[in-house]
Simulated assay, not measured.
Amino acid sequence: MTPLPALDEIARFLRHIKYAAATLALIWVIWLLAPILTPFVAAIMLAWLGDPLVDRLEAAGRSRNTAVLLVFVLMIMLIALALLILVPMLQSQVQTLVAALPGMQTWLLEKAVPALEARFGFRAAEWMDPQRLIDWARSHWQAAGGAAATVFGYLSRSSFALVTMVVNLFLTPIVAYYFLRDWDRMVERVASLIPRDHIATAAKLASESNEVLGAFVRGQFVVMVALGAIYATGMALVGLKLGLLIGMVAGLISFIPYLGATTGVILAVLAALVQAQGVDVKLLAGVAVVFTVGQLLESYVLTPRIVGDKIGLHPVAVIFAVMAGGQLFGFLGMLLALPVAAVANVLLRYAQERYRSSELYAGNAAVIMPAGVTDQIHRLTPMADEKSKRP
């Protein structure tokens, strides 16, 4: 393979530097605009989810505007139906929780705290005396003043965040409608900007990314709803009063591996202890059975059949992606974490194929082979080595 001239090598290096700088600048702009980008990202995801159905309606003879309007109305009706069903149920659960709060306080102060004090040898009840807390605050008034300022600052930010959330709830469907209407046009414009000598590779990667994202997002949504229903129904059957609320919370956060089940188990055990005013072995065993059955169904039935293995992300990678996205970009980062990780996984697989067919990997005898051939060679190589060792 003839080496490139030095000037071409320098030009290529500078071009890579330029691309890296542009990528970093884009990430910086996203970080700055993260608070206002959330409704737009949510709208793009809704448009992406609804576009296949719009395309089917167009193929059936309807115009783009009519198809978009039908799909948009269908999505709104589904959301409204879910709210009509879930809001009264959640309201009942919240009322049950509020009614149980005095009993929780009594059980905590009269049973749980004394038992912990006797077990571990510390005096927790003293720190729950209001007068002692007031005296402690007076003796540390400067720190208390700083903490109060921090708390009030957080409350003011939270109030602003609440207003922003309400605005986003109304803004997201409006933006989603326009994205859905112009989806094909936007895709064509993005495709027109891709260099012509890379269009085939870009189309292949985009198709694989779309397939992975579709399998994961649509499948994971179904798994979340199914797990929420399983947990809520199971805990209601075993007699846990707050089972519906806990089951829904555990189901909604089950897209993060093991976090949904772990959170649900902790909340369910605490609710069972408070409800029984102590240890009810039958109730705790029922909770354990519900979450065990839920995890077995998720691992061996729901995820393999609905989500499949197309995303190819290890659970540790999923947890890291969600935590990193939340740390860097807040809620927007958590919303984008798994789609970005899925697309990055597709790009990494492509980079691995290119690397295995490169001179760096194979040496001077490198042969450029189509994607997939290298994997077949690596599967066959151990078999050939094993046969050569036989007498």
Rank of each mutant, 00 (worst) to 15 (best):
W127F: 09
E188H: 10
A161S: 10
A232D: 13
A203I: 06
A148I: 11
F122K: 07
A148Q: 05
M128G: 04
V151F: 14
A236P: 01
Y178C: 07
L205N: 03
I134T: 11
A226N: 03
V166Y: 06
F122Q: 13
L193E: 03
F179V: 08
L213W: 01
G219W: 02
W127S: 13
G234K: 03
A229L: 15
G243S: 09
M165T: 13
Y178M: 07
V190P: 01
S158F: 14
D129M: 04
F221G: 12
Q131P: 00
M235F: 09
A118S: 13
A143V: 14
F152G: 02
A147R: 06
V175Y: 05
R189Q: 11
A202Y: 11
Q142K: 02
L242W: 02
R132I: 14
W136K: 09
R157P: 00
D197Q: 13
I194E: 02
L242H: 09
I134Y: 07
T150K: 04
Y231Q: 06
A203C: 06
S192M: 06
G228F: 05
V190A: 13
A202V: 15
H198W: 12
W183D: 07
Y177N: 02
R189M: 13
R157M: 11
A176Y: 04
S159A: 15
S159F: 15
M224R: 01
I230D: 10
Q142H: 02
L244N: 11
R185Y: 12
L133W: 09
A200M: 07
S159G: 15
D135R: 08
L205A: 08
A203G: 11
A215K: 06
L180R: 00
A147C: 08
L205E: 04
G228I: 09
N168E: 10
A124T: 11
W183Q: 02
V212K: 10
A176P: 07
A161Y: 03
T172D: 05
L193C: 07
T164H: 03
D197K: 09
A125E: 10
L162A: 12
I230N: 08
F221I: 15
E208C: 00
